[in-house]
Design a protein around this nucleic acid. Structure first.
Lengths: 339, 339
DNA sequence: CTTGGCACTCCGGCGGGGTGAGTGCCAAGA
DNA sequence: TCTTGGCACTCACCCCGCCGGAGTGCCAAG
């Protein structure tokens, strides 16, 4: 009974604080939200909530502000992720459907996410490791120079230029292409790498020229850079923070350059929880203690190949952000399904 | 005589202001720089400089600050772009030499530039329009599905997936590849597009399946998105601005999202001036009136295919920035030459 | 043309009183 | 036992006036 009202008070505090960015007091609370009790009652509840650590006051005789623990309770128990409106879904669909290739999908997703949430958006490129080799193309740029193009099931294309020790004639090129294709196409990345390695071991290939090609391919496949590729957008939204420049904007700006940090923030791709929220100090970086992350995995089928999400101040619109992240993750997954 | 000293005073003011970020007064000027005259003399010079519009005071009884016009004079007549130190050049060379492909070159250049200048760096991807077609590859993903890969002389690779109305057998595919290659390879983009158009007109190709392929190729070649691709880095340096958040950081953050704006800031690629400096209001956007741009063209050979540069507050280290921009532009050009 | 002297201006920091939002506590009412 | 109105209290914040200091412009002398 009282317990229930207390939660209502917490919710009201969170909502008001997010909206106004100012500590919220008992009086304005009862005015704004139609809780049918007096300020004094609310004050008692607030004292209790403060004892339990859900809210805090910046200084005596100021209103209350949610703590990280308070936000946590809010998202865990007081939030229902409301579905996007039909109009919003149409907008998402139409924007993403226009994409021409994987790069474009990722770019558009970032823009979309940052616009929907008015926060900084992060989208990880689909991970290489689980995708399969769709095609390998060898193009002779010169007799001793080869362009190696690797096409993956996710639509990603990697290319490398290889300098050969000796010239390679057309015939040899055709054969090389066939042998490599035989070994790699259709395989999961990891298997393809071992299969190519085996080719070299068997000496099924004429060594001098081809070793370099296999090397380049293997390197392209296991290139860690690819796993770590990330698109970031909406940094302009940082300008809206206004206050809390030092506590939030500065460290976040620095983090945005460090893609490794961003990847860690997004967390690991799991099929479990559909959506992850990390609030303030819960994250691994204490410089980012006043920011939160809302992220979700995406990928074709049921698997989560990669992650996307947003970063913002702990004082953010969690229900809205969660809805947006979930919606975009779903649509991107669908598009990857079709491709 | 006096004229000379006045310029020395202006230079000193610019240097001090850039270093301290504070209006500079006559006394501290003579202390810091060894001009052999008294503060009073300097004051007279400053009054003259102010009359001519090179410096201004934020309010009475404050020190002087350079105006845009003052900075302009400074870079035009008082600056010699000092060459980078040998160590710096080695660092640049070693960082850029490790690049594996065009994308990587651009990414590394951005990071390098932002680190060298501690400003926001911008690198435009080499423009499509002047490059030539090196190779066209058609890959059958399914009987009615084709992956079209376009490889350009700059090392850029564009790919499109094409859905065909009718199935295409291997033989037809080989022929199609040959015909297209014949028409396009070695041509400048623009010529290739018209040549492909001619193919369609001549009906030299079996229509139904192949029209879509030609379309996709033409589209990929004239894709404006490619011309507008840009890499941005060093946004974290914005955090150092500290003051002047509203006047400089906010609009710049917003501009960073608008790649079209950034392109316009970089200016057009010309072979003339090796390096361009645009100071404050000289630029096309009045929101960016308190920022300056230092840019240069780069590209293989003598031609400037694209541009790169940095954006920062008008109060920036112009000689240093110009040196860094010039050095990076040169090294990138050299690398593109080799590729 | 340069220089020292001098009066003037005005930003910025400091201290003090008033205001108001908000609180905690208490005693009375449901 | 919970709710409610009343009441005294506490600070953050704002406004104001006061100063010190840096910097200036002007002038007369060298």
């Amino acid at each position: 009974m009282q317990e229930e009202r207390r939660l209502a008070v917490l919710r009201a505090i969170v909502e008001d604080y997010v909206a106004t960015e100012e500590p919220v007091g008992s009086k304005s609370l009862v005015e704004r939200h139609g809780l049918g009790v007096s300020p004094a009652t609310v004050r008692n509840d607030m004292a209790a909530l403060e004892d339990e650590g859900y809210i805090a006051q910046p200084h005596t005789s100021a209103g209350r502000v949610p703590t990280d623990k308070g936000y946590r309770l809010f998202v865990d128990r007081l939030t229902t992720v409301k579905p996007m409106s039909a109009a919003e879904r149409r907008a998402i669909a139409s924007l993403l459907d226009g994409a021409v290739d994987l790069d474009d999908v990722v770019q558009r997703s970032v823009r979309l996410l940052s616009q929907l949430t008015r926060q900084v958006a992060i989208v990880q490129y689909p991970t290489l490791s689980r995708s399969t080799v769709r095609h390998v193309e060898l193009v002779a740029l010169a007799p001793n120079r080869l362009l190696v193009v690797l096409i993956l099931s996710t639509g990603r294309v990697e290319q490398r230029i290889v300098e050969l020790a000796a010239d390679l004639d057309d015939e040899a090129l055709v054969e090389l292409r066939a042998v490599i294709g035989q070994a790699a196409i259709g395989q999961v990345i990891a298997d393809a790498v071992t299969a190519l390695g085996a080719l070299v071991a068997e000496e099924a290939l004429a060594p001098p020229a081809t070793l370099a090609v296999i090397d380049a391919l293997s390197e392209a496949m296991s290139d860690h850079r690819s796993d770590e590729r990330i698109a970031v957008g909406g940094a302009a939204n940082l300008a809206r923070y206004g206050d809390s420049f030092d506590s939030a904007v500065r460290p976040l700006l620095e983090a945005l350059e460090e893609h490794v940090v961003l990847l860690k923030l997004l967390g690991e791709a799991t099929t479990g929880e559909p959506i992850t929220v990390r609030i303030g100090h819960e994250g691994p970086y204490q410089e980012l203690a006043s920011t939160s992350v809302v992220a979700a995995g995406y990928g074709p089928g049921e698997e989560a190949f990669a992650r996307l999400g947003i970063v913002g101040p702990t004082r953010m619109d969690y229900p809205g952000s969660m809805a947006a992240v979930r919606a975009v993750a779903r649509y991107v997954s669908r598009i990857l399904d079709e491709a």
